[in-house]
Design a binder for these strands. Structure first.
Length: 573
DNA sequence: GCCGTTTTCGGCCCGACTGTTTTCAGTCG
């Protein structure tokens, strides 16, 4: 299941929310928020820490350490339960609506008895909020729009959440006696950006022990269906997991079938029919004789249909079958191709790990170079200054090459202002090895303005990477309104790379936009945007997204040797 | 509730935007 750190993070964050909603001390709420983030990003498993070690986590003092200890020991925290009892869970859920915070959520509950997102939508529609102080026509509109954005996620979970769970299920089932193979399939294997339910496939002669082990996993809350071939459960977090058990001989056909996508499989079945064959999860069969042709490996199935094996991220019926037939499948980038990370933060701004910790952790991942790119001063809340940045640069230079000979680059994440300008004057920017530039404000500009703004940023000779180019947050904020083709043209023309931000709630650019951008000859950078050491491995999700966008290693600048990368970063200056 | 080149209480990220209001509260990054 989730790391204990994440569970504790969620608990502390919930307590912070409850304090805000009930009108408690704002600084106290903030203290819990800070502690939540620090625990979530802490490099050690909190469930293994004694009280003294717990208090060494930044922003965790006696009171919070006690609560964490209480939670780990009993699964509950009395103080949290007490507040939960006073506020319906739906009120807290309402604060997830963009633009609706704790104060007004509480007001809606007090004044109108509204205690769920559904009731809120009803009340808006019925005009019951009209005479409430602070609620006008525009607010109603924003609430409905916010709910729509939230619902677009449609009960799906982020890739990392699904991946953590799936890998744990696979690990536990693999250890069951008689389990010959076990793997996750479905949209997760294809690295879709959100996951509706998790498909796990096992091969065994006797499904019994596997099904038993499956329904008895500690995080299973409910068994939805139980059979010999398929069992479905719902976890305590509400995620559905399906386990299918097949005989070892059908492994390849089953893996192919359950990986999907549906559209891709339909294409394959059509090809089979034309060849006098029938494809199902049990194998590829001869229609006339009914004889099994192949089923043991995916490679055999594809080969018998006249195709090379197609990597799962391509299986969306977006031209991969045609490309395969022509022998023109791209040689997709792999995680091992990445030589470094070009967008990361430290606790100098909003990260929770120190420079030393981040650099050491990055070196352990095997990077040959690594860029530190903390926030620039126009993101005022980060309180960046010239002096702080220069002091960090010295610290970075001193660490350069000290961990596994990993080379360090000193950069920054600039803020693209509404006109397309950035934080510092050119003389100061000259001192950086690279500048990522991102939109952090004025997300609502019209398309013409936003396009001009981003194009101008590309034209800045110091800006080498556009960070999270559309600014979307999955389930929380839509992409900015920008003429993407215009932006992509500008990137190609100016030698500015587009980021593929690997953070699971961003994955920005998205696979579809990558496909579109690469047609313009754009270069990309797959970055973690890590704010903690635990975020550094998120790169796998960025690489998965890049693969869905058909990218080869050569199109991604951080697969390049440092020499070639540096030349690109100079941008002809 | 945490933190301290402040040892014990005062400060804690701060500026901008939005929608509502008529002087500002709430929300966001």
């Amino acid at each position: 299941m989730a790391r204990p750190n994440e569970e504790v993070e969620a608990l502390l964050q919930e307590y912070a929310d409850l304090i805000s909603i009930t009108g408690g001390d704002a600084f106290k709420a903030r203290a819990y928020e800070k502690a939540a983030r620090a625990v979530g990003g802490y490099h050690e498993d909190v469930s293994r820490l004694d009280p003294k070690a717990l208090r060494e986590i930044p922003h965790v003092g006696r009171s919070i350490a006690d609560k964490v200890e209480e939670y780990l020991r009993t699964g509950h925290v009395a103080a949290v339960d007490e507040l939960r009892a006073r506020i319906p869970a739906g009120v807290r859920e309402m604060t997830a609506i963009p633009g609706l915070g704790p104060r007004r959520a509480m007001m809606l509950f007090r004044e109108r008895g509204i205690s769920s997102v559904e009731e809120l939508v009803e009340a808006v529609t019925a005009g019951r909020l009209r005479d409430l102080r602070g609620f006008g026509e525009k607010t109603e509109e924003n609430i409905l729009h916010g709910v729509a954005v939230m619902r677009q996620a449609g009960g799906r979970v982020l890739l990392n959440v699904a991946m953590d769970l799936a890998e744990e299920v696979v690990a536990e089932l693999s250890a069951v006696t008689g389990c010959a193979r076990c793997a996750y399939a479905g949209s997760l294997r294809r690295y879709r950006e959100t996951i509706g339910d998790i498909d796990v496939l096992s091969a065994a002669d006797d499904p019994g022990p596997l099904m038993d082990a499956f329904v008895n996993l500690s995080y299973v809350d409910e068994v939805i269906a139980r059979g010999d071939k398929k069992t479905s459960v719902r976890t305590t977090k509400g995620l559905q997991v399906d386990l299918r058990v097949v005989p070892m001989g059908a492994w390849g056909a089953a893996l192919q079938y359950f990986t999907g996508s549906k559209a891709h499989n339909i294409r394959l079945r059509e090809m089979a029919v034309r060849a006098g064959l029938k494809l199902s999860e049990y194998g590829l069969f001869d229609v006339e004789t009914g004889d099994l042709v192949v089923s043991e490996t995916e490679e055999e199935v594809y080969e018998r249909l006249g195709l090379p094996w197609i990597p799962p991220p391509l299986r969306e019926d977006r031209g991969e079958v045609e490309a395969a037939l022509r022998g023109e499948l791209p040689d997709l980038i792999e995680e091992g191709d990445l030589r470094g990370d070009l967008h990361t933060h430290t606790d100098l701004t909003d990260g929770v790990s120190s420079l030393d910790e981040m650099v050491a952790a990055a070196a352990r991942l095997g990077h040959s170079y690594y860029a530190v790119t903390d926030h620039a001063p126009n993101l005022f809340m980060q309180r960046m200054s010239d002096d702080k940045m220069l002091a960090q640069r010295e610290a970075v230079r001193a660490l350069d090459g000290r961990h596994h000979r990993m080379r360090l680059l000193h950069g920054t994440e600039l803020n693209i202002d509404p006109d397309g300008g950035v934080d510092w004057p050119p003389e100061f920017l000259d001192g950086f090895d690279l500048c990522v530039a991102s939109v952090h404000s004025h997300f609502n500009q019209g398309s013409a303005e936003m396009t001009r703004r981003l194009v101008r940023a590309c034209e800045n000779p110091h800006v080498t990477i556009i960070g999270h180019p559309t600014g979307r947050l999955l389930g929380r904020r839509p992409a900015v309104d920008v003429d993407l083709d215009e932006l992509f043209r500008a990137c190609a023309r100016t030698g500015t790379a587009l980021e593929i931000n690997s953070f699971p709630d961003r994955l920005d650019l998205s696979d579809e936009n990558i496909l579109r951008a690469r047609r313009h000859g754009v270069r990309f950078a797959v970055d973690s945007d890590a704010h903690s050491v635990v975020h550094l491995p998120h790169l796998r999700f960025g690489v998965g997204t890049a693969r869905r966008g058909w990218l080869t290693a050569d199109e991604v600048i951080n697969t390049w040797p440092l020499r070639r990368l540096r030349s690109f970063l100079r941008k002809g200056r």
